[in-house]
Design a protein around this nucleic acid. Structure first.
Lengths: 368, 368
DNA sequence: CCGTGGGAAGAAAACGTTTACCAAGTACCT
DNA sequence: AGGTACTTGGTAAACGTTTTCTTCCCACGG
């Protein structure tokens, strides 16, 4: 195993190797640096790591060589021997959504502050792709895989998650579910959720307290955990205020602007009576707003409106939207924190629920 | 070099190793699989790669072992020998902004479809952190580093970018600037920009054509390339329509809602005459809208308004905002495509400008 | 003057893959 | 029946680090 594999046509003096970085296309290795500095690779490694005594003069030579060759360590090689902190993987439906983007920002921030990279991937809701991604992250030695975004919670879902959790756990990684329902006891996963039910309760109660007796609920898809919880919160508030439940006020659909628009228009057309709308999400509320306006109804003068999520534009609507704030960024930060700190104090929680908070703006008025 | 380093107290028959995955904390390696299947590591590797003939019966045994040990390949080891496609690194100011999120989505999508991971990092505008990140990405052997988001374009900026470009290029990677001005000839970087000037021209011309003679321009910060370009477009249109340039209509400030609000209110207070506003960005337009409304002016009845960017909420405003659409997602996709395809046909462009397009909604009215 | 200890540096063995190079067995052709 | 080519599998050499042993040298104490 000759140490020099690339021709070195120069004089035998090790001090000066012409042909810097450029010509030899392959990036320079620690061996190149060692040769350039006239020391052994071990010395270079130690100089760079700084965890071993190195003579000042030697250090200088090494540093000079590093600079002149533009040397950077190869993470793969480093990871193979010494320890390299694994990245944090973020797997989401679509990074474009305003709330998801905030979760991503939280994850990235917390990961970054702990010296870890973040990998983001989107699934577009494809479970097969989710499978592949979890596998991929296992290969990548991700320190944690954060799955975010609500899905339908059925048996298959639980099986899938349990599978992920075990697979990741056995590879020394950690599954974190963010904004998703908890898993059965014993599954090695961490869940960071927020209080959908409480938020929906507050929102509905706010309307009822303002004197509204008939509140149109624009709920989310059946089976989606967050939608179900919000639905429960709506019902809780009704009950707490002794208000009868009315079938025709309780609608279900996508969390899209279009769905909000269509459902509101339909309710109006069908002559359903209501003086307030609780939209299961801000974008749904946006649709409702459009439909109401189209029907010549003013918000909040004629109809009050409350949303959910507090997406950035909520404050910029006219009227500014009263809504439930979800601490999305904090959600992301917490997810990373829990996954990474688990190792230390290992009696830590596997299920954390962050609070939500009603933020009152201009879209609600006391009922006449 | 004894092949077995972990105790294997079982019978010598290689076929069955008890103690599956669980107990021995370290993830299983290809050697474990080979032992379990009773073949050599080479055979396991080849079976998994599928690029070499393997007897059906052998393949079965290997696959069974892989399953039972939950084996996944170690990317680091793989990267060290065989080729592993480097990730795409996305470095941005803050992923939370609506337009940047779309660029990110485009990058992620194109990267994913080419079997590459995407790393995202945010700098919060800190140039030192940007330096560190470029270094880090070089270590990670990123196939490309995409820098996105406009910055002030001065000499220091050019020096920094040229440094990044050369450092990355020498490591076989590629610097891609997205929505940033081009670099001097000879710098090994790719630039993907969009037509700020043309878009601003269209927007302004649209207002002028509608008969508006005095258009308040809410421009962006001096020195920021995209803001400068939009400013130029505004002036181009004025000139093209033979309209005199009026100092007091040409304002400069941040691309924030607050700045738009403040500047519009100030213009109103100072008695500046205008019948239309061209906001340099949609969020600025949002602020303008608020200020106008507050002053009792209706949009578009009293004052017309055009934005820039076409962020998602633009269509949901009342009135729906006429604005200039920027193909953010396409920007991200193109960045990745150009960076990756460069190797093949190497006469490819190093500077691509994507078109922008005026989308006409309800915020502009012909001047009375 | 010799042994000892510590500071500085080198040699080489991991780390987990892939793959070039061999070797052995088998079927086929002449 | 012997050579040949093809199939299948193993051996071992990279890949670029880190780190554990060594080794070497020099100063210092007895």
């Amino acid at each position: 195993m000759t140490d020099e594999k690339e021709g070195r046509p120069n004089a035998p003096g090790a001090k000066r190797a012409k042909r810097k970085a450029g010509p030899t296309d392959r990036p320079s290795t620690i061996r190149d640096v060692a040769a350039e500095a006239g020391v052994s690779v071990a010395t270079v490694s130690r100089t760079l790591a700084g965890n071993y005594p190195v003579a000042a003069e030697t250090r200088q030579r090494v540093m000079a060589a590093v600079d002149s060759l533009h040397y950077v360590v190869n993470v793969h090689a480093k990871a193979l021997s010494g320890r390299v902190a694994g990245p944090i993987a973020l797997v989401m439906h679509d990074i474009t959504g305003p709330s998801l983007a905030h979760v991503a920002a939280g994850v990235e921030q917390e990961a970054g502050s702990r010296g870890r990279l973040s990998l983001v991937c989107s699934t577009k809701g494809d479970t097969e792709r989710e499978d592949d991604l979890v596998q991929l992250m296992r290969e990548q030695h991700a320190a944690a895989v954060v799955l975010v975004g609500s899905t339908v919670t059925d048996d298959a879902y639980h099986r899938r998650m349990a599978g992920y959790a075990k697979a990741l756990d056995s590879a020394g990684s950690r599954l974190v579910l963010c904004g998703r329902p908890p898993l059965p006891k014993g599954v090695p996963a961490t869940v960071v959720d927020y209080d959908n039910r409480g938020g929906a309760f507050q929102a509905t109660a706010h309307l009822l307290t303002a004197g509204h007796r008939r509140v149109l609920f624009l709920g989310g898809g059946r089976g989606f955990s967050s939608a179900e919880e919000r639905h429960l919160g709506y019902q809780d508030a009704l009950r707490a205020h002794g208000m009868p439940y009315a079938e025709e006020l309780d609608t279900t659909g996508d969390y899209t602007r279009k769905s909000g628009y269509l459902r509101t228009r339909e309710a109006l057309r069908a002559g359903v009576e209501f003086t307030a709308v609780f939209a299961g999400s801000d974008v749904v509320g946006l649709g409702a707003l459009a439909a109401l306006r189209e029907a010549g109804l003013r918000v909040p003068h004629d109809v009050s409106l409350v949303g959910f999520d507090d997406v950035p534009f909520a404050a910029d609507l006219t009227p500014a939207l009263t809504t439930v704030r979800v601490p999305y960024e904090e959600l992301g930060r917490t997810a990373v924190r829990l996954a990474l700190d688990r190792e230390v104090g290992f009696a830590s929680d596997n299920h954390v629920v962050l609070g939500t908070q009603l933020v009152i703006r201009d879209s609600v008025r006391t009922a006449s």
